[in-house]
Computed example of a mutant assay.
Amino acid sequence: MRFIARSLGAVAAAAALTALATAGGLTGTAGAAPAGTASLYSPSALVLSVTAGEDPAEGTVLRAVTLSCAPTPGGTHPDPQAACAELLATGAGLDTITAQGSEAPCTREWDPVTVTADGVWQGRRLAYSHTFGNRCTHANGSGSVFSF
């Protein structure tokens, strides 16, 4: 008896789907966007991190934040507007940002801190890493992008 009820249920479901398809209820696209459509904004989303040590793969991650710049600045970065503005001004030239330096006096101890940026900037893959000699040089020479 259960077999008959299951068979009738399956037949009824198939008949309902057929009726919907012929009546125009199912179009076959499942709500997908038309082929060839483009977003108004190129994706710009990064994961930024500060790691103790020279090798970000081996070191201890001290802090990490997300930064999204399109369509509006956001993420967990403490100042996404300033960080996105700095990235836009330099064309995401992170070497320019990390080479800024400052006149702040820092000791010459070697206690490396590595900053990384991984993600997509204006539709292109971005992977960046830079090692500072210590936390003082990082704090005084990393611009607003890596200040978190």
Rank of each mutant, 00 (worst) to 15 (best):
M1L: 10
R6Y: 06
R6M: 06
S7E: 03
L8M: 07
L8C: 08
G9R: 02
A10Y: 09
A10F: 08
A10D: 03
A10I: 10
A12E: 00
A12D: 05
A13M: 09
A15P: 03
A15Q: 00
A16L: 14
A19F: 12
L20S: 07
L20R: 07
A21K: 01
A21Y: 10
T22A: 10
G24C: 05
L26P: 01
L26I: 13
T27V: 11
G28A: 08
G28W: 05
T29N: 08
T29P: 00
T29H: 12
A32T: 11
P34V: 08
A35P: 00
A35M: 06
G36W: 01
T37Q: 12
T37A: 11
A38C: 06
A38V: 09
A38M: 05
S39M: 10
L40I: 01
S42T: 10
P43T: 11
P43F: 03
A45C: 05
A45T: 09
L46W: 01
L46R: 02
V47L: 11
V47Q: 07
V47E: 11
V47C: 04
L48G: 01
S49H: 00
S49E: 01
T51W: 02
T51M: 04
A52Q: 11
E54V: 11
D55P: 03
P56S: 08
A57T: 12
A57Q: 14
G59H: 06
T60Q: 13
L62K: 13
R63F: 12
A64I: 09
A64V: 13
L67K: 04
S68Y: 09
C69T: 12
P73C: 12
P73W: 01
G75H: 00
G75Q: 00
T76S: 15
T76H: 07
P78H: 02
D79I: 01
D79S: 13
P80L: 11
Q81E: 12
A82M: 06
A85T: 08
A85P: 15
L88S: 15
T90S: 14
G91H: 05
A92T: 05
A92Q: 04
L94S: 00
D95R: 04
T96F: 15
I97L: 04
I97M: 03
I97C: 03
Q100H: 12
Q100V: 07
G101W: 02
E103I: 08
E103R: 15
P105S: 14
T107W: 02
T107V: 10
R108M: 11
W110R: 14
W110M: 11
W110L: 13
D111Y: 08
P112G: 04
P112V: 05
V113E: 05
V115T: 12
A117V: 11
D118Y: 06
D118G: 10
Q122R: 12
Q122G: 03
G123D: 04
R124M: 14
R124T: 15
R124I: 15
R124L: 15
A127F: 07
A127D: 13
Y128S: 03
S129T: 15
G133P: 13
N134M: 08
N134A: 06
R135G: 15
C136M: 13
C136R: 10
T137L: 11
T137Y: 11
T137W: 10
H138S: 06
N140C: 12
S144A: 15
V145D: 02
V145K: 01
F146C: 01
F146Q: 02
F146T: 04
